[in-house]
């Protein structure tokens, strides 16, 4: 049994999950780069968090990092 089996046996579950996380990632990055400033930290740190720690990085960015208006 391989990791790839886990993936292909559960496509109806895994594919929507991956699409969601991808969507969130894109939304967070777009929001991040449309703003001039962030709260707590800087753009680079948030970029790394969004890309590397999915999906928590993006969620944390929207709650803590995004400049409120």
């Amino acid at each position: 049994m391989h990791n790839s089996d886990l993936f292909f046996n559960n496509l109806p579950l895994v594919v929507p999950l991956m699409l969601l996380e991808l969507g969130l990632l894109v939304a967070a990055l777009v929001s991040l780069y449309r703003r001039k400033t962030v709260r707590h930290g800087n753009r680079l740190i948030w970029t790394l968090a969004i890309v590397l720690v999915q999906p928590f990085g993006a969620i944390a960015y929207f709650i803590f990092g995004r400049e409120v208006d």
Binding site: L20, G23, L24, A27, S31, P55, I59, F62, I63, R66, V68
Partner: peptide, 10 residues
Amino acid sequence: NYHVLILAVV
């Protein structure tokens, strides 16, 4: 403020 988006996705 993306609150709807966060809640929906999560």
